[in-house]
């Protein structure tokens, strides 16, 4: 067993883990963050995407021990004071989810891509999400949602953007 200290969604945890434990299993089983899910075993589907020290990663392809000393943000840590993150809101507004299994990973990756490119066109959104598979939506409403979120998060976009400023959420404002 190896001792690790990890901050998850703003809470500090110190745990003994087996070196072979995947970060996603640590999050789900030891920290109780079952919002993050496992969809494959070859890192193709992206359902397990979280932010590790501010960047999107596939938590099924990282050992928990590799996250020692790091900060992790999951889908469960996005909302601020009961307000959804603009990307969460946009997924709801644009019917960008059906079964919802890929959704946590999609949202976490969407936030990361908006951090890199605050005003992406359709092609840029699609490329930014190439590591996340969805079987329900055909992606069209996801693309729409990410662009809608970009509008909400852009400066001067009005009250929606002010609710959650990009710099206050993981993945934004880099």
């Amino acid at each position: 067993m190896t001792r690790i200290a990890v901050t998850v969604d703003g809470v500090k945890y110190a745990d003994e883990v087996e070196p072979r434990m995947l970060l996603v299993h640590y999050l789900r089983e030891q920290v109780g963050k079952t919002g993050t899910v496992v969809g494959c075993d070859t890192s193709n589907c992206g359902a397990c995407t979280v932010h590790l020290d501010g960047r999107s990663v596939k938590s099924c392809s990282i050992l928990a021990v590799q996250a020692d000393g790091s900060e992790v943000t999951t889908i469960e840590g996005l909302a601020r004071e009961g307000q959804l993150h603009p990307v969460q809101q946009a997924f709801h507004d644009n019917h960008a989810l059906q079964c919802g299994f890929c959704t946590p990973g999609m949202i976490m990756q969407s936030i990361d891509l908006l951090g890199d490119n605050p005003d992406p066109d359709d092609a840029a959104v699609r490329e930014g999400l190439e590591g996340n598979l969805c079987r329900c939506t055909g992606y069209q409403n996801i693309v729409k949602a990410v662009r809608d979120a970009a509008d909400m998060m852009s400066s001067g976009a009005g009250p929606a953007a002010e609710r959650v400023s990009p710099s206050s959420v993981a993945g934004g404002g880099r």
Binding site: V37, T103, I107
Partner: peptide, 21 residues
């Protein structure tokens, strides 16, 4: 209508079978 189902699915408050312990 925007979906009622979304609230839990976009926030990670989901009840997949594998979550049950």
């Amino acid at each position: 209508r925007k979906r009622k189902e979304d609230a839990r699915l976009i926030s990670g408050r989901t009840r997949w079978t594998d979550n049950i312990s």
